[in-house]
């Protein structure tokens, strides 16, 4: 069944064009971007070393893996689902990356990336299948797979740990070398953000994900293949978690049984701070990426201005709550505007 989507799409673009500036101000990424700019500016004023070449490089390196994970998570959250198992997926993939390099010395790095992403895709699609086929909420299913994947990782790794020395120098160099000031793995993350952003903003399946998140029943009525699309979101999230796992092995010294434990709430928090509504249907992956950058930058900023490091997590918590409140206010204002414009049309 193919339904024509063009009428709503064109009417949306014309209204956008009509008040372009106001639309920019209404973007959900605005608050988080402003917060990031303010944070960086204030920290820079207090301690200019914060934005030295090395400082910027560290900021970007710290953010890279979180950015990739939160972009994937944003795709899932937009469909009114959630994936709690990403930390465990990242752990398994990071450990398997270490294993690959040890078992097959001289294996091409590209192959390692592909293998990691394929493993991520497999684990992500298991989540997706369980959620869509068994029609059980994703919170429960991925809580289950969080344990199962972590348990498999534990059983496989046991006490084994692989260190950076086990991996070729050129692989580790990915998170040391820079191109135009950007570490290579950060460039990979930026490419990922751009690709996923284009997919979400301007392709049919991408828009379908928003439709599903706004109203699953309406999306089904409309003829959107809900099952396939939700599966796609989980699969993509798995691929990105796999990619993050490979990059983790490049960036950090050791990978083992506990790699990536407890990441899940940080990642969801990054997406929520970046304006992705927890109940789906709105928010962008660029917002999620900026949210991830903001949360990781806070840690460095606090160190730079010599605030007790123990405050960091409390501040992250407050930021998440602020993001939720801002989201609610924005929503109430939009609803009011909609009511007014509908009243006028009548």
């Amino acid at each position: 069944m193919t339904l024509d989507t063009s009428p709503p799409a064109t009417s949306e673009t014309t209204t956008r064009r009509a008040n372009g500036f106001a639309a920019v101000l209404r973007l959900r990424e605005i608050p988080v971007t402003l917060a990031l700019i303010a944070l960086v500016t204030l920290t820079y004023m207090a301690n200019p070393l914060f934005l030295s070449q090395q400082g910027v490089k560290d900021l970007l390196l710290n953010a890279t893996i979180v950015i990739i994970l939160s972009v994937g998570q944003a795709m899932v959250i937009v469909t009114r689902n959630v994936d709690l198992s990403i930390g465990s997926i990242l752990g398994i993939v990071a450990f398997s990356t270490g294993t690959l390099f040890v078992t097959f010395p001289g294996i091409p790095i590209v192959l390692v990336f592909l293998a990691g992403m394929a493993l991520g895709a497999l684990l992500g699609s298991i989540n997706g299948c369980l959620v869509t086929v068994a029609k059980v909420p994703s919170l429960v299913i991925t809580l289950g797979t969080l344990y199962i994947y972590r348990g498999l990782n534990n059983a496989w790794a046991g006490g084994t740990q692989y260190f950076a020395g086990d991996r070729p120098d050129s692989f580790g160099a990915l998170s040391v070398d820079t191109i135009a000031g950007f570490p290579v793995i950060t460039l990979i993350a930026i490419v990922v953000v751009i690709i996923v952003a284009i997919f979400m903003a301007s392709t049919r399946p991408g828009r379908d994900l928003y439709a599903i998140g706004s109203d699953p029943e309406a999306a089904k009525l409309f003829g959107i293949p809900v099952t396939r699309r939700v599966l796609l979101a989980f699969l993509s999230n798995g691929v990105l978690a796999g990619l993050a796992g490979v990059l983790y092995a490049s960036r950090f010294n050791s990978v083992g049984a506990t790699t990536g434990t407890g990441l899940e709430f940080d990642i969801i928090a990054a997406a929520v701070v970046g304006g992705v509504a927890i109940f789906g249907g709105s928010g962008t992956v660029i917002g999620a990426a900026i949210g991830a950058l903001l949360l990781t930058t806070i840690t460095s900023a606090l160190t730079a201005i010599r605030v007790d490091k123990f405050w960091q997590q409390a501040i992250v918590g407050l930021l998440i709550l602020a993001a939720i409140v801002i989201d609610r206010i924005a929503r109430i204002r939009t609803a009011k505007k909609l009511r007014l414009s509908e009243a006028r049309d009548v």
């Binding site: 709430f265 969801i268 927890i278 007790d308 409390a314 992250v316 407050l318 998440i320 709550l321 939720i324």
Partner: peptide, 30 residues
Amino acid sequence: LVAVLGLPSLAVTIGTLALFRGLALVVIGD
């Protein structure tokens, strides 16, 4: 936050999960 302000509990309590654990760190450090 959840009952009076009507915010989604999943998101709110992820926030307070970080906040309260953070306060625990502030109180006692390591």
